[in-house]
Design a protein around this nucleic acid. Structure first.
Lengths: 217, 217
DNA sequence: CTGCTTATTGACCATTTGGTCAACACCAAC
DNA sequence: GTTGGTGTTGACCAAATGGTCAATAAGCAG
């Protein structure tokens, strides 16, 4: 039995026409959410459309390449902001290596604590990298290597100030070891949830103390 | 055009009847492979069947719960072996804290290097933990906490021998920081592939040197 | 050999899902 | 107002996929 009194005041509610750029980023945001929550295979185009308050067909208007296209665009939209702040902090820093290290660890653990794009990006990279080989390269060039370089410069700052042992700058793998706990902090949080995961302040303090001892002259 | 001479000597090749336990683990192995390679959502039951040289229907005979059932069984089949060897090594060890630490790092980096069940398990836990909350608990109780306990005992061994600073046993988060680089080594390898990932021997050496400095009295 | 149990199959089903497309509506320019 | 371009829709499709089930064959006990 159909409604005998269809409400003429509520026609099927077509979405307002939007400037191309706005819709584009609106859809992109929805896609980031959906992919983050379900992974590539689990994500549904229809769900992306719903999140963006749009119909499925429109997705293919903005991303003609379909799901893959949308996925790559979603990932790239997360890459930019990640290291910008860290590099800004480091570049303008006037102080001891000790303080710079502390500031960067604060920043790292602090940002990873909030459920932001950094977090999502990391998850998608880990989850899908083997099915999208470009992702592996993206991770290496856009995140891993800049991070290692940043750590290297911190170490050199400390050495120049006489706070750290001179040899530290030349030990291969040291930057990796120094970086690992931060990333693991994020991964634990993502895997176990904020309640079960090790507390970030505890990790930060232990990390800092550990690093300073190992870098001492 | 169909074959006018169907070969009567090759009837549809029914799989040999197997003892229940064998088929069970055969299917389980296939499932582990499939889930590891494609994640839960991406894994296809038909593919599991093919890998196991069996038809789809049989999967539901052995795992009446369907895909979820099979998935959980697959994960559980990977949990057991992970820490057994490490705890065996540690338990029977007669030597300095330094040597024990070196031996365990060797073991850790060595095993993670080979694409074995430890590796697969870690990947599945990271990938699916938020969709299967039991997995988070499983990870914490079966892997994370035993690992931390193991590290704690190593530290105490070293302290007892006078090699490590006495305070080290009581610093919360220290075990986490000590463990992180090993896990990250595995994750990098899994994400970037063996070629692009940081070399494991380099990580191990840097890790050991770093830890010994930080633990020194 | 006979009959019972059960491992194994292949065909089948309902649903989901990525993707397509012709029609429609909104806006700007003329 | 008319026209043209395009943002937007809803209905539709083919393929893939998880799952079911009656029929079959293999082993085993009597």
């Amino acid at each position: 039995m159909t409604d005998p009194f269809p409400d003429p005041a509520t026609p099927p509610a077509r979405a307002a026409r939007l400037p191309s750029a706005e819709r584009h980023s609106q859809i992109l945001d929805a896609a980031v959410e959906e992919f983050a929550g379900r992974g590539y295979a689990g994500a549904r185009m229809a769900a992306v459309a719903t999140r963006a308050d749009v119909t499925k067909g429109l997705l293919y208007h903005y991303f003609p390449g379909g799901k893959v296209d949308l996925f790559k665009a979603a990932i790239e939209s997360c890459v930019d902001p990640v290291l910008q702040e860290a590099e800004r902090v480091s570049a303008g820093f006037q102080g001891s290596g000790h303080d710079l290290l502390a500031a960067l660890l604060d920043l790292g653990y602090g940002r990873l604590a909030s459920e932001r794009r950094e977090h999502i990006l990391l998850r998608l990279l880990l989850t899908e990298a083997d099915r999208f080989p470009e992702l592996a390269t993206l991770y290496r060039t856009a995140i891993l290597e800049p991070s290692l370089a940043l750590i290297g410069s911190v170490i050199r700052t400390g050495i120049a100030a006489g706070e750290f042992r001179a040899g530290a700058a030349d030990e291969p793998g040291l930057a990796h070891v120094l970086m690992a706990p931060v990333v693991m902090g994020s991964i634990w949080r993502m895997t176990l949830g904020a309640e079960q995961a090790p507390a970030l302040p505890m990790l930060r303090d232990a990390h800092l103390a550990f690093a300073l001892r190992a870098l001492a002259p």
